[in-house]
Design a protein around this nucleic acid. Structure first.
Length: 562
RNA sequence: UGACCCAUGGUGUAAUGGUAGCACUCCGGUUUUUGGUAUCGUCAGUCAAGGUUCGAGUCCUUGUGGGUCAACCA
């Protein structure tokens, strides 16, 4: 077997290099470390696919670790949704862990640090400390509390821990270098007082460790070999390393975790920051985190995206260190490609106009056999009812049209998919000139698949349809892009909401073939000639609701608009 | 007037000093009982200037452009 040689991304290259330099393969371990303060989005999917993908590739464990050091923002609801989303994406973690699992260990290490004179309690206001911190171009100055005695620091920190101080009154700082060119090294805060209930540790603690003090140590405890995060943490790396240095014990555990950074994945025509997504939810611009227009995992799932398509998208888009805006067309391509292979084809009419087949017996009805997929095995078939009165799409009929129009026009023939060839004879219009009824005749020997000479006749154009008498009514939610601009948050002087697309949701009453009556939530279909649709969770036994996942490519619409 | 990171077709990525490739998008042909799919094809790229080298997208220098860093957020 010749295996195609696949090029490695820069992180895989780093791993290969580490392996070549003697890192045993069994030591490889990764983690996905979300803060449970919101819902996961397609950008997180990139990180999930990357970390879990590395786990699969190197047969290494991957932990799901909740970075829960700020009880003010975190909730169990988010923990649950994140676990659900990671699972749904198809990945299996080694362990579910929480940074809060390490609060005691972190505290013990902190005491040791204080005893070494490497940390001190500061009781200045945050404003005073901000001034002393300097700026990126100017060095900072030392805090007047920087040289407190070890005894005093120990005593004050204990009081912090015991709740004897108010929130905001004291912090513990690492004693590093106030003149460091990296702002993060200017005596960063390790602990702050937060008298808040934590979703896991309850009221056990009133001091909480900061991200930097927690993250590298958590990686060290879990023996994560490669701690992969996004680019904005690059400047935290010095601090990450400094903190790991404080506790790293070569004699016990040889593995020293390393942080490496990649560029977050951006998508055109949407926004990705949690803050902005939250704003859309809170202001009612969308209907919740799982609104099918949202770039959240839950939104994409409800929209009809498959886990497979999202994984393919992440793989295809790749990773690097450059800022990027990936064309949403790539995501759409991935779902169309997946659904093309997997979705059964059915018929639904979104904008109906009535067709009467004048030479078809009045009370006759036939159940025609229709394949769920004409070109692939294994999809099976179902009966589709046919009768004298049908619906077709309004835009599939014109009284007159040029020969580029392959659809129904007066005096011309067209095939009804899975049924007969019909010919338009006349039409009835209302007072506005709008066509309300099309009268056709049918060729009774032309039934699809009957094998007759007439059935083999070539007619240009095949239309989908439903029998009026048998059709099910359904609500169809037709989605368009949420924003009209490629990079809605890329304009310095304009708010991203100025670019909201007023037509991002169009709800219509449609008619679908009766076989769809029993469809269940998340069942996915191709509505022939229209697009891919899935059953929404709002569906009840009385009412079917579909979401349009993505339309089919429509080269006629392109041609027609020219 | 700082430190650090980044720069390849319209977009996203590959080429690890040796033929600039792949995918998406766009455009066109063929096939088609979905104007879908499939299939074939076209257009299109190494930020700039120097340097090293037989040879530079890749290494060096200097520019230019973009990004990140001054939360008791992560």
């Amino acid at each position: 077997m010749s295996e195609e040689k696949k090029s490695l991304n820069f992180l895989e290259q780093i791993i290969e290099e580490d392996l070549a330099n003697g890192l045993p393969k069994e030591k490889l371990r990764f983690r996905f470390p979300p803060e449970p303060n919101g819902y996961l989005h397609i950008g997180h999917a990139a990180s999930i696919c990357l970390n879990f993908g590395l786990g699969l590739k190197y047969n290494a464990p991957v932990n799901l670790r909740f970075d829960d050091t700020n009880p003010a923002k975190e909730e169990q609801e988010y923990v649950d949704s994140i676990q659900h989303d990671v699972h749904w994406l198809g990945f299996q973690w080694d362990q579910v862990l929480y940074s809060s699992d390490y609060f005691q260990q972190l505290y013990d290490w902190t005491i040791a640090l204080i005893k070494e004179g490497k940390a001190y309690v500061d009781d200045q206001s945050s404003e005073a400390m901000a001034i002393q911190k300097g700026t990126p171009t100017e060095p900072g100055t030392n805090s007047p509390n920087r040289d407190r005695s070890i005894e005093e620091n120990l005593e004050l920190f204990l009081k912090m821990k015991n709740g004897e101080f108010d929130e905001g009154s004291h912090v513990l700082r690492a004693k590093i270098d106030m003149k460091h060119t990296n702002m993060h090294m200017r005596d960063p805060i390790m602990y702050r007082i937060l008298k808040k209930h934590h979703h896991r540790t309850g009221n056990d603690w009133c001091i909480y460790p900061m991200y930097d003090w927690t993250h590298g140590e958590s990686d060290y405890i879990e023996q994560i070999s490669h701690s992969i995060c996004t680019l904005e943490f690059k400047s935290h790396r010095d601090l990450y390393d400094w903190y790991v240095d404080q506790v790293f014990d070569e004699t016990k555990l040889e593995l020293r975790p390393k942080q490496r950074e990649f560029a977050r994945r951006n998508l055109s025509y949407t926004v990705m920051s949690k803050r902005k997504l939250l704003q859309l939810v809170e202001e009612g611009v969308v209907n919740g985190w799982d609104d099918p227009r949202m770039p959240t995992i839950s939104g994409l799932r409800r929209r009809g995206y498959t886990a497979n398509s999202i994984r393919t998208f992440s793989d295809t888009a790749g990773i690097s260190k450059r800022d990027n805006v990936t064309d949403v067309a790539l995501l759409e391509h991935c779902i169309k490609d997946d659904l093309n292979k997997t979705a059964p084809r059915v018929m639904a009419v979104l904008n109906p106009v009535k067709v009467v087949i004048t030479n078809y017996p009045k009370d006759k009805e036939e159940f025609l056999n229709a394949n769920y997929n004409d070109y692939e095995e294994g999809f099976g078939s179902r009966p589709v009812p046919f009768s004298k009165e049908l619906y077709i799409e309004k835009e599939d009929f014109r009284e007159e049209a040029n020969k580029k129009f392959f659809r129904l026009k007066l005096g011309k023939e067209v095939r009804l998919k899975n049924a007969y060839i019909i010919k338009a004879e006349s039409c009835i219009k209302d007072e506005n000139g709008e066509v309300t009824e099309i009268h056709c005749t049918y060729d009774e020997n032309s039934l699809s698949g009957s094998g007759s000479e007439a059935s083999k006749r070539k007619v240009k154009g095949t239309l989908h349809w439903v029998s009026i008498k048998h059709a099910e009514k359904a609500e169809v939610r037709v989605y368009d892009r949420l924003f009209t601009d490629e990079a809605p948050d890329g304009h310095k002087d304009k708010d991203f909401k100025e670019f909201l697309n007023p037509d991002s949701l169009n709800t219509i009453e449609a008619f679908v073939e009766p076989s769809l009556k029993t469809a269940k939530e998340l069942d996915r279909f191709q509505f022939q000639r229209l697009g891919y649709f899935c059953v929404d969770k709002d569906t009840t036994s009385e009412k079917l609701v579909f979401n349009r996942t993505v339309p089919l490519r429509d080269s006629w619409a392109k041609m027609d608009s020219k």
